[in-house]
Lab assay of single mutants.
Amino acid sequence: MSDLPVKVIHVESGKILTGTDAPKAGQLEAWLEMNPGYEVAPR
């Protein structure tokens, strides 16, 4: 599992989470399930 943060964006508000606020790569799927409305942000 990776500890690198994955940049995500809230589709409706446009809020972007990066760095320490962003979910870790190894926890991404579970985090997205618990935080509806967020998607992986385009690079």
Rank of each mutant, 00 (worst) to 15 (best):
A22V: 11
E29G: 10
V8D: 11
L28R: 04
I9M: 11
G26H: 15
M34A: 13
V6D: 10
I9A: 12
P23Q: 00
P5S: 15
Y38L: 02
E12C: 04
V40G: 04
P5A: 14
D3G: 02
M1I: 11
L4F: 13
H10E: 06
V11K: 15
W31Y: 04
K7S: 14
D21E: 14
P5I: 11
V40R: 07
Y38F: 11
E29A: 12
M34N: 14
V6Y: 11
P5W: 09
Q27W: 01
Q27T: 15
A41V: 14
G26R: 10
E12V: 06
Q27Y: 06
E33Q: 12
V40A: 08
D3L: 01
N35D: 00
P42K: 15
E39C: 08
A30Q: 14
G37W: 00
I9R: 13
A22K: 08
M1D: 15
E12K: 14
P23G: 01
K24S: 08
A30F: 01
V40F: 00
M34T: 12
L32A: 03
E29D: 11
L28A: 05
V6P: 07
M1T: 15
P36I: 02
L32H: 06
K7L: 02
V40W: 02
S2I: 07
A41Q: 08
I9V: 13
H10C: 09
W31C: 05
K7A: 15
E33C: 05
R43C: 08
E39S: 08
K7T: 14
A22I: 09
P5L: 06
E29K: 13
D3N: 08
V6W: 05
V8H: 01
V6A: 10
G14P: 05
D3M: 01
P5D: 15
V8G: 09
K7D: 15
V40C: 07
A30W: 06
P36V: 01
E39R: 09
L4D: 15
G26M: 08
V40P: 07
K24Y: 01
A30T: 09
D3V: 01
V8L: 09
L28F: 02
S2C: 09
V11C: 09
P5V: 12
L28I: 11
V40I: 09
P42V: 08
G37T: 03
M34I: 09
L32S: 04
P42W: 02
S2T: 14
A22W: 03
M1K: 08
S2F: 11
N35P: 00
Y38I: 03
P23E: 02
E12G: 09
M34G: 09
L28N: 05
M1E: 13
P36E: 05
P42H: 14
E39M: 12
A30C: 07
